[in-house]
Computed example of a mutant assay.
Amino acid sequence: MKKCVVLSGAGISADSGLLTFRDAGGLWEGYRVTDVCTPEALAKNPQLVIDFYNQRRRQANEAEPNAAHYALVELAGYYRVQIITQNVDNLHERAGSKNVLHLHGELNKLRSVDNPDEIIDFTGEQTAETVSSGGGAMRPHIVFFGEQVPMFDTAAEEMRDADVVVIVGTSLQVYPAASLVHYAPPHADVYLVDPNPQSVAADIEVIRKRAAEGVPDLVEYLIGKA
């Protein structure tokens, strides 16, 4: 069975009604990136950061997977599908995808400030008093701007033996995630689902549609080739 690696970004979640900083020109409901999504912001005003991610968690958990998410589940019946997502929601998992690697963390988890290896599932409302098993403070399990992406090397290894690469909902402008496509082997077929693609390499086939429309069409095509 051939392997298909899917690189997903904000555009696939946008079709479920979830917006991003990029969609809002650097503002998200009045918040600047530097106010709520940096290590400095967490140190300066932890409750503001916590409140922001409580709101994001509520919105994400109220959203529903869309046709693109479900199409990728169908694809897994014909290919070994590995999803590498920049998104912090769990819409891929809720649709039924099993192999999902989150590059930028997950809204429904918290991480100990003192021990980064202590990560817990969390779907409620965090407060500044939410503590780890060792009594230390907990923070959103999110890779903030300016922080290292700990899962990048794992993602790069997953890409190295891909037969097919599907890029959906990402502009390939955010690094290091944007560089992952360069780890695909030369024989891999690469597809980009994007209604308004930026400059794209000649060897990438472009489907000029939104995720919820373009991914099901591409999946139907790929299944026919399986």
Results as ranks from 00 to 15, higher is better:
Gln126Leu: 06
Ala63Pro: 12
Lys44Met: 06
Asp121Gln: 06
Gly134Tyr: 03
Val100Pro: 11
Arg160Tyr: 03
Thr85Leu: 08
Ala212Lys: 15
Ile84Glu: 07
Thr170Ala: 10
Leu172Thr: 04
Asp89Ala: 01
Gly77Glu: 15
Ala24Ile: 00
Tyr183Glu: 15
Asp89Lys: 00
Pro150Trp: 07
His104Trp: 02
Glu213Thr: 13
Gly25Trp: 01
Glu147Ser: 05
Leu72Met: 11
Glu118Pro: 10
Arg210Pro: 12
Arg57His: 04
Ile223Ser: 13
Met138Asp: 11
Asp161Met: 06
Leu222His: 08
Asp23Gly: 11
Ala95Tyr: 08
Lys209Cys: 07
Val49Asn: 09
Leu180Asn: 10
Arg57Glu: 00
Leu218Lys: 05
Asp194Thr: 02
Lys209Arg: 12
Ser133Met: 11
Gly214Asp: 12
Leu222Asn: 11
Gln198Trp: 01
Leu110Lys: 07
Ser171Tyr: 12
Arg80Phe: 03
Val190Glu: 05
Asn115Gln: 14
Ala14Gln: 14
Ala156Ile: 03
Phe144Val: 00
Met1Arg: 09
His102Lys: 11
Cys37Arg: 02
Arg58Glu: 11
Asn99Trp: 06
Asp23Pro: 04
Arg58Gly: 06
Val143Ile: 13
Gln86Val: 04
Asn45Gln: 09
Ala137Cys: 10
Thr170Gly: 13
Lys3Tyr: 04
Phe122Pro: 04
Asp121Phe: 02
Pro197Met: 02
Asn87Ser: 13
Val193Thr: 03
Ser132Lys: 01
Gly96Asp: 09
Ser97Asp: 10
Ile204Glu: 13
Arg56Ile: 01
Leu42Ala: 07
Lys44Ala: 15
